[in-house]
Amino acid sequence: MTTHSTAGTFEAAPRPQLAPAARTHSLTKLYGSGPSAVRALDDVSIEFAVGQLTAVMGPSGSGKSTLMHCLAGLDTPTSGRVWLGDTDLTGLGDRALTLLRRRRVGFVFQSLNLLPMLSAQQNMLLPLRLAGRRPDREWMTHVIEALRLADRLDHRPSELSGGQQQRVAVARALLTRPDVIFADEPTGALDSQTGAQMLSFLRTSVRELDQTVVMVTHDPRAATYADRVVLLADGKVAGELTDPDPDAVLDAMRTMGA
């Protein structure tokens, strides 16, 4: 399709022992059609390992949100393939994708994560209720305590602070024990201290709860919490860092010309 070669380091890397939690092959996504079509993702092949916190970084318009939407079954690729575990999402219909999101995917968005008319607890339990499943009480207590939400359960989102709202969203994502949690700019609407708490919690859940998290962000500080950083530019993978520190991330961003 194109002569441009993607980050050589990635293709040369040895295959991980475990099957990846999610991966794409030649993923391409076009918006619109004809000459005015926008190429949001251009031939992206990438893997996300189980039990890792991966940050996808890139400037606005780099295609990072589109990548996340395609991985999570929220959007369908124009060409190429997407797997969640060993499920090929490419041929699935809307209903199958919905059930897959309900059972195997968790979401944390930048803001407006919660339904305003439901209490914190109702919001947390919504995916389980939609699936008609009962929550695992022990797990639920654990998650609520870890996120320090015990005394906020009956509050409506409008009565919660921004950080609390995001923690409820994380709790919601964790309760179903999904294969992957996708977090889209989870700290974007938070002040730096609350954001830091949020990120350390996400990392703890990866380390201690063996959770897989893919996080889209353009905040270099957020990326430092990740095990691995994938850099995206103009719809292509532009590089990758393992166990990054802030300087490395900033350097990488700078070389990308962001």
Binding site: R103, N113, L130
Partner: peptide
């Protein structure tokens, strides 16, 4: 619209 999208994301089917 946003709420509906959120619900769809976390697992509400189109029929629901």
């Amino acid at each position: 619209t946003h709420e509906s999208a959120l619900l769809r994301a976390i697992g509400l089917t189109r029929g629901q």
